[in-house]
Design a protein around this nucleic acid. Sequence first.
RNA 1: GGAGCUGUAGCUCAGUUGGCUAGAGCGCUUCAUUGACAUUGAAGAGGUCACAGGUUCGAGUCCUGUCAGCUCCACCA
Length: 750
Amino acid sequence: MLDKNYDHHKYESQIYKLWEESGAFTPKVDKHKQPFTIVLPPPNASGKMHTGNVLMIAIEDLLIRWKRMQGFNALYLPGTDHAGFETQTTFERELKKQGKSRFDFDRETLYQMIMDFVLQNKGLIENQIREMGASVDWTRYTFSLDEKVVRTVYDTFKKMVEDGIIYRGNQLVNYSFKWGTTFSDAEVQYKDQIDPLYFVRYQLVDRQSDEPEYLTVATVRPETVFIDTHLAVNPKDKRHKQWIGRKVVNPLSQESMQIIGEGFVDPEFGTGIVKLTPAHDKNDYEVALHREGLPIQSIFNLEGKINERAQEKHVPELFGLKITDARQKAVELLGERIEKIDQNYTHQVPVDYRSGDYIENLILPNWFVKTSGIKQAALQAIGKGELNIFPKWQEIKYTQWVENMRDWAISRQIVWGIRIPVWYKVTPQNAQDFWVAWIDSHKVQQKGVLNTFLNETTSLAQIKQGLQRIVTLTANAEKDYVVSSTEPSGEIDYIPETDTFDTWFSSGQWPLVTLGYPDSEDFKYFYPTSVLETGWEIVTRWVSRMVMFGYYLTGKSPFAQVYLHGHVRALDGKKMSKSLGNVINPDDYIQEFGVDALRMGLVAGSANGRDFNFPRDKVIGYKKFANKIWNVARYIESLPSPVSAAEIHPDDQQVLAELKTTITEVNRHLGKFRFADAGETIYQFVWHQLADVYLEKSKERKEAAASTLVEVFTTSLQLLHPFMPFVTEAIWQELRLGAGPLISSSWPTI
RNA sequence: GGAGCUGUAGCUCAGUUGGCUAGAGCGCUUCAUUGACAUUGAAGAGGUCACAGGUUCGAGUCCUGUCAGCUCCACCA
């Protein structure tokens, strides 16, 4: 006898085990069957499940189970990501609790410590994926630092270097002094901030009698004044265009600066005159690139302090100061030349997406992917229909973003990740071009230019042993490095690159590496994958990169269809955030209402790809629904033995016809990624047509109606299975409705 | 500045190529019920589909404009 009510605690874990052991999750390569593949967007290996992950898995598992039942060879491929920067920052917080920091360890030790940390925590997210009922193939599980991933990433890097798509450049990057690393454009966000806006006077050279003595420039960064190379005005600006070609004196360095015309200058802003600081501003940098002879000189060292340029430019007072202190000091030095200060100036400052700390634009040697060569295919994919994004309007966003993509800085100055497989040649002549940080034999950190350390007592080998980080002070020409995963042997000394790849460089190849690119049987059979399902916020960082790598390496889009779900917002309609205290922990809902209810509630509440509020009401509603199905099963169980009746009653005919319509509708909705509609359709049928009407009426003719009731209910369970896998399978097992488990039964046809 | 999304019942939202007598869930009202289920059943109230024009035999749906909310991208030194 079934219990009076459905108790999800009683069934969920044992049913997952049953599925996994049945082999239903593990498709075999079979040329006679058509593959259907979804690669799970890998969650952070040391993270835990959030509502977005739940929705993601609910939708993907729904598609997979549907296709599996339809007879496809369905592969749902799981994995987790090392999430380089995010994990390292998390780990650093742990270190801080112990009174330590990353600077206390050499890179290999630190890497191993983080690896241990991640391995310790990895089980949590894996268990949560199981708990969700995701019918993923654990035998093909991939972690993004698995050897096969690293190997492919290295091969790709090598190929891209050889093809000239990856290059080493000394150019403007987004840099965080707090974290000591570069960020890609996609990782930079902007936040509003109020800063004083200083109006600084620049004296005109060779002034004619009727002219003012000076020009005024508005800036929030007086500390950079001394390195200004030029002033710029908009050539269309009638007030100012006459200054083009004239000169002013830099109020701090006293050097003469030419005034140039540049279209980017907004005549409406400030005074309509801009100072140019090419090493620390994107616009100014662009100007410097297309104009000959604009010096690009950085004024910060790697610790965010003013470097020796301060002396060269005659403002020694600024040397060694941090940015904020330098700003104060510069204001003092400018003194009278500051005409006025606007204290209420609101502007947007760049911050990193993770911690919201300042990002500076700096010139640093970095590895870059030249996007101009590979983004064309990623754009054409849309036009050619090889890549379809749902909802359709997201294609516009994707296209815009790819079109505007600048070169992609892929090196990160953190240890947690895949080390860039490069070795720099070290010779007595170039030892001054490397800055190194390393832990010496007394466990003390040393920092400085390499050749200052190399002497009788300290060998290069010692430095390498305790190496934390190297920075090449110039962009190395190709002859100065070797691409290799292991240290090249021979006469010449080498020092390893310590930068790691941007996580998105490896996860951009995720569909490839998980399937065993380039020559595994799996890859040949399951690639390209069928559907990529993920959140829209990740289109720029991830989806676009996967498409680019897919075309670059295989000539194909890694997936034909992309379905983007919306953000799950908090109950109050706001973005979930710790500070607002409105974060929803899916575990609470799983405990209280069960996985089926949570999955179905989210699927039914997801607004066709738009953002939506966490649908608590629906989750509760579907828990009740699970119980409703359960009780239909209980009723069936209570029936006298099913009697086959010859008569076809009109009620039977009607319910069978309604069932047919339901099957058609569910298929139609699922085919269009309209999951909420599909769920709603089957819900309405089961509750309000089957249970409320047909079942009630059949009570007057129990024996005669029994076989139809069982048939319709069995089919309903199959239709419901992809949406609510646990309760449907539990009933299937308890009532022994089929030979094998429900997960492996056939999708209803008409 | 560029682009996109949204505005439908008290609340959260469906409404797919125009055919709507506008739906669902929750909430609300009234009633019922000890044999599948109160995690229930039956009945009901509730909407000039943001606003103004237009196209059409017909507009929640298409077009134009206005207002409001949200988001993304680019950025102002």
